[in-house]
Design a protein around this nucleic acid. Sequence first.
DNA 1: TCGCCTTTT
DNA 2: GAGGGAAAAGGCGAA
Length: 477
Amino acid sequence: MGKMLAVWDCKSLEKFENVFDCYIAEALIAEGHPIGSEEQTLQKYTVQTVSDLALQQQDKLLENPKLAKLYFEVELPLAKVLFEMEQHGILLDTKKLHAVGEKIDGLLDSLQGKIDKETGGDINLNSPAQLGTFLADKVGVPLSRTKTGKYATNEGELSKFAEQFPIITNLLKYRELKKLRSTYVESLIQKADENSLIHTTYNQVMVNTGRLASLNPNLQNIPVTSLIGQEIKSCFIAKPNHTLVSFDYSQQELRILAHLTGEKALIKAFADDQDVHVLTASKLFTVPYEEVAKDQRTVGKTINFGIIYGMSSYGMSAGLNIPQEHAEQFIKQFYASYPAIRTYYDNYLKNARIHGTVETLLGRRRYVFEDPKRKLIDNSMRRVLMNYPIQGTAADFMKKVMVDVDREILNKYPEVSLLLTIHDDLVFEIPDDKLNSGIIREIQNVMTSVHPLAVPTTVDVKIGKEWGNLNNYFPNN
DNA sequence: TCGCCTTTT
DNA sequence: GAGGGAAAAGGCGAA
């Protein structure tokens, strides 16, 4: 939650009435440039008091109606919603998490034993430097180098040699478990309060695209893929007589791409509830939609997301493990299949160069040129810019949804709580006896109607007592 | 404090 | 010719 820097005629801070938040305002006005401390900001505006600062910032916001709307109707009311989420917290089954920790200890001990037999036990497995030297110089693994000249020992690099050098499989397993234990088990237990509640902090001005950041602890990167990861996630539980309900936007960023670009083929696919990764694959491989193979779909999916991220043919060839010429061919074929996407990005980048700023659908802006004297967009900025309207618009929508949810749902059902937001996912805690009251449908409706789009939006609902063990929800009527 | 690595969307 | 997928948090070792 943003820190309150200026408060006008504030009758009740608890209710966040008549509040102006200079940090949030400053972040929107700064358009992605780093914002300074309170004192630096006062100096920048050449004012003495925070009230004067707030007045000038408000004037500045009002010059841009979209930005003013974003501030007053989304960001500022959101601060109150985030504050309440932070205060509420999510319940952690600390006893169970301790047990998971002990299970990991056992697995790590046995792995360490196996690995020490090969290394002699005199290297620190947690040191990439020591590990790289050992693998490359003693074992003879042909590791590539990092940009600073050290041996690269990251997961992608080591996996390449896992078959040839069996020790690597154990090393990767060791890494994974060590990470889970230190980042998730130990620190989460330590951060639970006296009631076993975990209180994250949300920062709403940290990320240029407008996404929220979660910290101390970060609840937006709780593991999900591995089995042990799932066991950790399952230690987050609903409080007694309540159930966790998660609402997850399906393919939200690709839907936003379809909307922003107006690409007919993509819009039709979403309208017909088709699998867009299969659709892209069918165009790339020129096979009928029904005959797309699984590995072809994987390529389609990689290209779809790669385009959103402005991926180069090099990045794509690395990601798919294919020659760069093939990747170039795929990208070419992609744009040929979706011509409106190419037109959109051509125009978008042209305007970015002309105006020096880009913006999301709700008008959040970011700068284009680090140095305003240079008027060329380099490759890395090009990728940032291509991602910005997609990720940023998705973030705008989610923030607005949270404000709408607060007004339309949380006010009406005070015993219902919004616990978490994970970019395209909201997690609520709902009393068991309210689950069939229609509230799930109401929340879905708020999410799907946040902003009219050229495509339908879909929200998948999952419910359960443990966050890591939720089941698809199908209403019985 | 920086670099490397791993986790998420 | 190098570097070459967006946005993050955070643990750890090395200096």
